[in-house]
């Protein structure tokens, strides 16, 4: 096959696919962060730990109870989302009257506690989670080999992202959410239960992180640090996209994954820092982020 810019197409498309996979996780995670930030005004530093919990709970359900991958896709976000709801009710909700910094500190501390607990019981070596039989194998597309599971991750992430976008931007419930993000006290004065909406929104954001964790379990090894490593990049994605913008989080997530993949092909040495360089540049030119509104 012909080479493009001196790069064999296999390598190019391979890296693009990898970038797309990473982008799928960036998008899901930054979407959850954006939803939470929009309504609660806190940066949920526990997000990486909650993603890790998603992967672990999927592994535990499979190992201890024989719950398969497909059920895990449904049950894990519900279970981990429920822990988020409890967390919001018991702890985070007590901080709303304080500076946002306190919410950040609390969730950061929680992330350390959660990761510490899992490290204590499961070590750091990583646990295997095998690809479900229905999604194993792959297809030769001619120009590249596409593993079925990786294709599935991209499709599933896109579907969830678009579904979330639709729910927020095009439904009555989403209108409540957007209105409460803008002016919670007036929305309350219309008779809507804003505190309950805040709790459910946090639970939903956490559930998205957990879903990303389940999707990640068969690809990356399930280990207590998997979230901590990823979340730093995701925060950069959120900063680039603009805090609180739903579509911005999705587009930036996928976009940066792809950019990262391309950098890996053309200038591998820079691939680890590419996202952060872009972040610095965006902050210089558009401090509110690519899709952010200036307050």
């Amino acid at each position: 096959m012909v080479e493009l810019f001196g790069i064999p197409p296999q390598a190019l498309f391979g890296q693009l696919l990898l970038g797309l996979i990473n982008g799928s996780f960036y998008a899901l995670l930054s979407l959850g962060l954006a939803v939470i930030f929009g309504l609660l005004n806190i940066i949920n530093f526990a997000h990486g730990a909650q993603y890790m919990m998603g992967a672990f709970v999927a592994w535990m359900m499979l190992t201890y109870f024989g719950v398969n991958y497909w059920w895990a896709l449904l049950l894990v976000p519900l279970a981990v989302g429920a822990t988020g709801i409890v967390l919001e009710r018991l702890m985070i909700s007590r901080l709303y009257h304080l500076d946002h910094l306190y919410g950040l500190l609390l969730t950061f501390g929680l992330a350390l506690v959660i990761q510490g607990l899992f490290r204590n019981y499961y070590g750091v070596s990583g646990l295997p989670y095998s690809i479900p039989a229905e999604l194993s194998g792959g297809t030769n597309l001619g120009f590249m080999f596409l593993p079925t599971y990786r294709g599935w991750v991209v499709v599933a992430s896109l579907a969830v992202c678009l579904g979330t976008w639709f729910a927020i931007e095009r439904t009555q419930l989403g209108a409540y959410l957007r209105a409460a993000t803008e002016n919670p006290s007036l929305v309350g004065a219309f008779g809507i239960n804003v505190p309950r909406m805040i709790t459910l929104t946090y639970g939903f954001g956490v559930a998205l992180a957990a879903l990303a964790g389940v999707l990640a379990a068969p690809i990356y090894s399930v280990n207590p640090n998997m979230g901590a490593d990823l979340i730093i990049v995701v925060f950069a994605v959120v900063v680039i996209g603009g805090m609180g913008s739903i579509l911005g989080a999705i587009l930036t997530g996928f976009g940066l994954g792809i950019v990262e993949g391309l950098v890996k092909v053309f200038y591998p040495e820079a691939s680890a820092v590419a996202v952060f360089v872009i972040m610095a540049l965006v902050l210089l030119v558009k401090p509110a982020g690519l899709f952010g509104r200036v307050a």
Binding site: R178, A189, G191
Partner: peptide, 28 residues
């Protein structure tokens, strides 16, 4: 009572600053 229960009791409020939401369409 919190505002939401006062609204549910049958009182509606139109604030001085109007309180139109910029992220919602007119219809929404």
């Amino acid at each position: 009572l919190p505002p939401r229960q006062i609204a549910r009791a049958g009182i509606a409020f139109c604030p001085e600053e109007r309180g139109i939401f910029s992220t919602l369409s007119v219809d929404e």
